[in-house]
Design a protein around this nucleic acid. Sequence first.
DNA 1: ACCTGAACACCGTTCAAGT
DNA 2: ACCTGAACACCGTTCAAGT
Lengths: 214, 214
Amino acid sequence: MAQERLSRERLLAAAMRVADTEGLKALTMRRLGAELGVEAMSLYHHLPGKEALLDGLADAVIAEIQDQIRGGTGWKARLRWRFLGARGVMLRHPWAPALLGARSSVPPRLFAYFDEIVGTMTEGGLSHRLAHRGLHAFGTMALGFTQELFRPEVGAASEVDLAAMAEALPHLTAMVTAELHDVADPVLGWCDGQTEFEFTLDLILDGLERAATP
Amino acid sequence: MAQERLSRERLLAAAMRVADTEGLKALTMRRLGAELGVEAMSLYHHLPGKEALLDGLADAVIAEIQDQIRGGTGWKARLRWRFLGARGVMLRHPWAPALLGARSSVPPRLFAYFDEIVGTMTEGGLSHRLAHRGLHAFGTMALGFTQELFRPEVGAASEVDLAAMAEALPHLTAMVTAELHDVADPVLGWCDGQTEFEFTLDLILDGLERAATP
DNA sequence: ACCTGAACACCGTTCAAGT
DNA sequence: ACCTGAACACCGTTCAAGT
């Protein structure tokens, strides 16, 4: 079954494949072994354990963000592309936000990634203090998720009693009604995500620019 | 050992106690049973399973945020107090961000919480569209965490080779050096969290206000 | 009704044994 | 050196039995 020699790279690639297709919970050492046509214990010759596997997976996601080509001139445009690219990576790997949020150690590549973000700001004329605060302001946006932490539950959502909801949650109901984009799917379709992500991004970028030019 | 009758409330209180003192990983059904002087299987008479326990815990955190008294007049001041209060709750329960981030179902109280936030904005004169985008812009800030996803590893942090770091990560090193607040702890002490949280909060609040008044 | 104890199906991992 | 298979210490949970 084992076509080629195992390696750390092959393990991580297979782990990402399993996570993409079956979710993070399905990624067990035994399942990963089966994916590679090998016993679970063989994996321990290339990685010290499960935690190291997840650390490597988190680092690989950062690497994928860094691999995104960046375009545009000016610090605002460059950061805009960076973060939109990061969001794209996260949409391809829906398990990634939860993984990055749960990791206790910082993925090594994250330092280089943040270094580049800071460099983009300071070379754009922002002070170190403002760049520092900017880094915090972007927060999880630099990793492509702002509001994606709670995944919608498909199925149960359409059974919402709008009349009862209007009584218990008047403001939210009024907003949903006013903001409805897609009538076909009144609960899931009223946020498109991309629009709100870009709004937040521009809000922060414009706020930083205003703070930089007194 | 079992002093009083068990109840869902007693289970959740004990679960929060275990999580606060020993962390979320230590919260197993057997450990929770021991905390209450009872066998693990007794818990299943008051909760359907582990997932329901974690759901209840997530909901209890939202309830604790909602219990914070809110002061101030005007929508910006009220939201400011709300989110600073949410941050305080999360600082008391360091396990909460990871839990809320990992839950697949939405805690029931979150709807009422968001309804109040939307109501604060619309009663302050913001359109439903702007309130909607504001809700997304606040994102995880409404739950008290923006950048707390990666916990610093105490101990290994002080062993950083600043000279090597300056070469590999020039922008980040320059920023850390320029922004150093506490010389005694050069790596952990250069962010105080609270300052950056308030900066982000005001950045978004001011940006929304500017978008509301053309 | 509520609680118990043994058992089952998992999981990550240790260890001695194979090649 | 790399991979295996049995075993160990956990975990959430089922089930029959107690009171």
